[in-house]
Amino acid sequence: MKEGFGFRSLHPIIIFMYYAGGITFGMLLFHPLILLVGWVMAVIVNVHLDGGREWRKWCIPMLSGVVLIAVVNPILSHRGRTVLYYLGDIPITLESVIYGATLAISMLNLLTFFVTYRLVMTEQKFLFLFTRISPKAALVAMMAMGLVPRLRRRMQELILIQRTRGVTISEGSLPQRARNGARLVGTLLSWTLEDALQTADSMQARGYGTGTRSSYLGFRFRMRDGWTLVGFVSCAILLLSAWGNGHGFMTIYPRLGSFSLSLGDGLALAAYVVYLAIPLGWEWRDRRAWLITNYRR
């Protein structure tokens, strides 16, 4: 499953809109059930795009951060009618526990959703989009990104070589180790600056900055992009109108409301789920097309 297949084959603008919208809706909606369903959808999108490999890698750090939010909130905030118990002198209220949990789910939802961004929005697409708005900054960001893996290899090499001289970060007192670490970074910097500036001269020699930047891949706005856009916009209108009429979030303070979803909440939830699922439609369609053309001739 490479570029040109399913979700990944959509136009960069559509992909960008999908992520911008998904994050916005994830922050606007504040109801534990809706957010949980959103999280499940985000996991499904993850599984469809790369079998959930990337998501599993982030699972533990995401969960630990989110649990921290859920735990800290009731300790800091004492608002709410229903006191569960007293932690020393501090009242722990049901409302602030629920608020913390909802905030944590909301955060988990956003983080899980954004894991797929890296899979879908490749560097080419990012540059294609942002060279129109901020060409130099986008180029700098992409160059820095490209440098990171190379510098990481160099850093490992440096750590290995310097260890033979006794410059190591795994032994010795804390200040000594910190000093050695910074010395490694300094060496890496002077090493990298030398050849990076040669790269820059090479760029200059090949005519960087003499015209507008062109893209190697030609992204065309196709029929499927148009349909996806229509789907996004109609879902967004539905969701925002439900939200504007006061649905899609739960009353927590001062007294905990009911968890059950009203009709408007249900509408917002449906619009949210459909919005998140639209790119999967293209995944399914392309998968089917691939199977049909390859096996059922």
Partner: peptide, 11 residues
């Protein structure tokens, strides 16, 4: 901006 300046910032 020259390519060198952008490269320096990226590095």
């Amino acid at each position: 901006r020259k390519a060198r300046e952008l490269m320096l910032i990226a590095v």
